[in-house]
Design a protein around this nucleic acid. Structure first.
Length: 554
RNA sequence: UGGGAGGUCGUCUAAUGGUAAGACUGCAGACUCUGGAUCUGCGUAUCGGGGUUCGAGUCCCUGCCUCCCAGCCA
């Protein structure tokens, strides 16, 4: 991570000897959904800082609400963190590991007269909490004796009371201008199967009661979290001080927001449940698993996160920045191949029928060690429909009657005519002649354009899924009146095409990343099977021609 | 409205009283057997008003705007 105020604070603590120079962070997700790219920022910050100061970063699951949490999510989170970090070598903990300690501490607070069992219902608690401008009212149960509280709390734990009938509350200040301090609930009665503790407990700690103490137990020095917890910090400090235990420093930073997507687990879950997307790892999702499936590389994601910057300003980062870092990494690493996505038949009328030669193609111009490969060339080829125009627009350098282009790694060809379907007028075939003196590698004349192609006879059929933005507006969270963010869903976020690929693609395995020359970066989907590859478009190449065209058309 | 936190190019972030900098985006050009990559150049910003100071994005006062909080969610 680049310079940021969090590092400055750690530096200051190290200089003052506050934690003895120790730096111990943690990444604390709730296992109630899949991780998204916003979490990637937090992961990079926490793991990055720990690494930089030769400290440790824990993965800790804040699993205090069994009604929303599942083992599936735990597994996905471990996988995503490992993938992003590039290793699985980090200590993993669960807040549920601390349930007994938390319970004991709650008893301690009761003994100190700092917590009480409250018989108010949820509605009553809300009614007596006051408002932003008016103080709350003390619960009528606030002054129960320590003995009664101890007895009641033990019986809560023992399962004597029904769900929701009682809570344990901290005795802080019902008149505090900070609503979090108005006797917050510490425990609720909840009979739900916990993904790790099963039915061992029927009372569960609230996040506010669990989080600070979990950090304390783990010896976390710098507890880095997002802005919305800023006004919970006084409460966390209060708990720690009442308990007299190790006191981490909480530091709040701005969460990542990205244009053209949503970043709350609630909304992402909604998209999954409504079937708007296929799953949590749908390549259109801003989830880490979705991005992985789409073909984003961990290095690209890391570079992005590193360059984000960390502050306390609530902003929205442009998607283009993410795409820049993904392209940057893929440009360095992805093997080039030739694939035609919208095939148009091209016939070289002067090329001998039945003849096949092979041409050498560079695997990665950015990396000589990637070597070369042989690609078959013949009389009948597939080219991109976009690469031929019967009547070329201004500035169009590709194929049109009378024009010459180079076939990548092949010959210079000249277009003579196009064959049309007499019924529809649709162009079905383009006829060209090739110049045998211009084979790739020769010193020959220059042409303005080079196009890619696939030899028809040996072409491998491929499916390509072309993804576009999931939403049509930069910030779908700002929904029109009466509608929610789904009002802005992009109906064209997925287009599937059937293309033709050079033979080497027949061996693509799920997760393999390529650059389809002149088109974009693609990643073999998990549904890829032998001889039948399916590709997800990771991100397109920058397309100055398309930009030019959209400018002309307004 | 009470409390908390923020406002620097279009976007995200630097500048820690001393020439407002970088990245992304945009625009223009060079180069190119990918209209990719690469290279070069250009543009745009300190929320407003006062004050302190030789000097203010930074300190003080004041106004404005934005975000967060009234779950037995996290």
């Amino acid at each position: 991570m680049n310079d940021n105020f969090v590092r400055d604070l750690i530096l200051a603590d190290n200089a003052s000897g506050r934690y003895g120079g120790r730096v111990h962070t943690r990444f604390p997700p709730e296992p109630n959904g899949y991780l998204h790219v916003g979490h990637a920022k937090s992961i990079m910050l926490n793991f990055g800082l720990a690494g930089e100061f030769e400290g440790i970063c824990n993965l800790r699951f804040d699993d205090t609400n069994p009604t929303k949490e599942e083992a599936e999510y735990v597994e996905s989170i471990v996988e995503d963190v490992s993938w992003l970090a590039g290793h699985a070598d980090f200590p993993t903990f669960y807040a549920s590991d601390y349930f007994q300690q938390l319970y004991d501490w709650a008893v301690d607070l009761i003994r100190k007269g700092k917590a009480y069992v409250c018989d108010l219902s949820g509605d009553q608690v809300r009614e007596t909490r006051g408002t932003l401008t008016e103080p709350g009212k003390n619960s009528p149960y606030r002054d129960r004796s320590v003995e009664e509280n101890l007895d009641l709390f033990a019986r809560m734990k023992a399962g004597e009371f029904s769900d929701g009938s009682r809570t344990l509350r901290a005795k802080v200040d019902m008149a505090s201008p900070n609503l979090n301090m108005r006797d917050p609930v510490m425990y609720r009665i909840l009979r739900a199967e916990h993904h790790r503790t099963g039915d061992a407990w029927c009372i569960y700690p609230m996040y506010d009661w669990a989080h600070g103490q979990s950090d304390s137990i783990e010896g976390i020095t710098h507890s880095i979290c997002t802005l919305e917890f800023e006004d919970h910090r006084p409460l966390y400090d209060w708990f720690l001080d009442q308990l007299g235990v190790f006191h981490p420093q909480q530091i709040e930073f701005d969460r990542l927001n990205l244009t053209y997507t949503v970043m709350s687990k609630r909304k992402l879950l909604q998209l999954v449940q409504q079937g708007v997307v296929e799953s949590w790892d749908d390549p259109r999702m801003p989830t880490i698993s979705g991005m992985r499936r789409r073909g984003y590389s961990p290095q690209g994601l890391r570079n992005f996160a590193r360059n984000l910057g960390v502050s306390k300003t609530n902003g929205i980062t442009e998607l283009e920045k993410l795409e820049y870092y993904i392209r940057e990494d893929l440009n360095r690493t992805a093997l080039r191949v030739m694939v035609v996505l919208r095939p148009l038949k091209l016939v070289l009328t002067n090329y001998p029928e039945g003849q096949v030669e092979t041409v050498e193609a560079v695997n990665n111009p950015e990396d000589a060690s990637a070597g070369t490969r042989s690609v078959p060339f013949s009389r009948e080829l597939w080219i991109e429909q976009d690469d031929f125009r019967e009547t070329p627009p201004k500035g169009y350098h590709r194929l049109y009657p009378g024009n010459e282009v180079r076939l990548r790694y092949g010959y210079i060809i000249k277009c003579h005519d196009a064959v049309k379907d007499p019924q529809t007028g649709e162009i079905t075939e383009v006829h060209c002649t090739f110049d045998p003196e211009t084979r790739s590698g020769q010193q020959t004349r220059k042409v303005k354009s080079t196009i890619h192609w696939v030899s028809a006879e040996t072409a491998v059929p491929v499916e390509a899924r072309l993804y576009d933005k999931l939403f049509t507006v930069e910030n779908p969270n700002e929904a029109p009146e009466g509608r929610d963010f789904t009002a802005y869903l992009n109906p064209d976020s997925l287009e599937t095409v059937q293309g033709k690929a050079e033979p080497s693609l027949a061996n693509a395995r799920p997760g393999d990343r390529y650059q389809f020359e002149r088109l974009g970066y693609f990643c073999a989907d998990k549904s890829t099977s032998a001889g039948r590859p399916v590709f997800n478009r990771t991100v397109g190449l920058r397309d100055t021609w398309a930009k030019l065209q959209s400018q002309l058309s307004g």
